[in-house]
Amino acid sequence: MSSDQIIPTVQVDEAVKVTSGTKFVNDKGITAIKNGIKASARDPQIEVKRKPSWLRIKATHGTRYKEVKGTVHEHKLSTVCEEAMCPNINECWSSGTATIMLMGDTCTRACRFCAVNTGNPKGWLDLEEPEHTANSVKLMNLKYLVLTSVNRDDLPDGGAEHYANVVRKVIEMNPDTNVEVLTPDFQGVFEHVETVVDSGIAVFAQNVETVKRLTHPVRDPRSSYEQTMAVLEHAKKYRPDVLTKTSVMLGLGETDEEILETLDDLRAINVDIVTFGQYLQPTVNHLPIDRYVTPEQFETYRQWGLDKGFLEVVSGALVRSSYRAEQVLQKNNVGLG
């Protein structure tokens, strides 16, 4: 999938049902269900980690958030924000920003950090999705829209023309809305990248996900560090006026030296925006967490990026690639203090 993880890890102090490789843990007895079988948390195949204090948030919902949520539910709209149980939903919705996922819920790739369904959609597309998406944006009165999707290697162009059709329809019906796309890598075919970049977007994003050494096993074999870099580089060269963006998950075993190397590689191809967030293990079948990155470390990585000349570096445990995405166009400094 082209976006960040969409299902949070299960922790000792919360009860969450994970839809793939089901696991249920709570602090009242600490039990787990794995593949439909109730098991003890002492099961060596089940790793239960305590969530550090900085990963716990207290939700506060303002008037704007409640208005957006009411519209979403009344009209049965679908957003990644709710379906992914994003911890930043209140802050983003309150600022008029939301993320919508295109082209279904089945990805043709199987990255080991992501809990999205893997399979072959066999060319299926919802041809009414451009109009439905544009209507959703209008109903939600969004000022900034992030469009993302699963990988669709089953389509000849990876879904590039579909992306472009959605963007054009959204802008036609919502001329004051800025659009960011977080796309697949289109198998490195620059023509397909150009199709999306020409559609009227403000920001083009493709996630490198992790440092070069960890690309495999973290990402699907069909994805690569070099391919993502090439896609981002071409998008910027082709349309210098469009901002380019990528996201890196931390906590997978990367070193500080490798983070610096990644920042240097991204800066060398003129990527404008980088986000850093904490990797959270979706299920027991996914890659384990190597470390919890502290808020102080996240701030250090952010400063490294700013010192290297990035337009913005958003860095924090709960940051996901679309976090407060609209602020970069306002030239705001997205601090997390």
Rank of each mutant, 00 (worst) to 15 (best):
I6N: 11
V10L: 09
A15E: 09
K17R: 10
T19I: 13
G21Q: 03
F24A: 15
F24G: 04
K28Y: 14
S40A: 12
Q45H: 03
E47F: 13
K49V: 15
R50N: 11
S53T: 15
W54V: 06
W54N: 14
A59E: 09
A59C: 04
R64A: 14
V68Y: 02
K69Y: 10
H73Q: 13
E74G: 11
H75S: 14
M85Y: 12
N88S: 11
S95C: 11
G96T: 06
A98L: 11
T106V: 15
R109H: 01
T118N: 06
G119V: 08
L125V: 15
L127F: 10
E131F: 14
M140G: 11
N141D: 12
N141R: 10
L145V: 12
L145P: 02
S149I: 14
R152K: 04
G158M: 05
A160Q: 05
H162N: 02
V166Y: 05
P175F: 14
D176P: 02
V181G: 06
V181N: 03
F186Y: 07
F186A: 14
V189A: 14
E191L: 12
V196S: 05
I201M: 01
I201H: 00
A202I: 07
N207V: 14
K212F: 07
R219C: 03
Q227W: 04
T228N: 05
L250W: 01
L250A: 09
G253H: 01
E254S: 06
I259D: 01
D265K: 01
D265Q: 07
T275Q: 00
T294P: 01
F298P: 04
F310E: 02
E312S: 06
V319W: 00
A325T: 07
E326V: 09
V328L: 00
L329R: 03
N333E: 10
G335I: 09
G335F: 09
L336A: 05
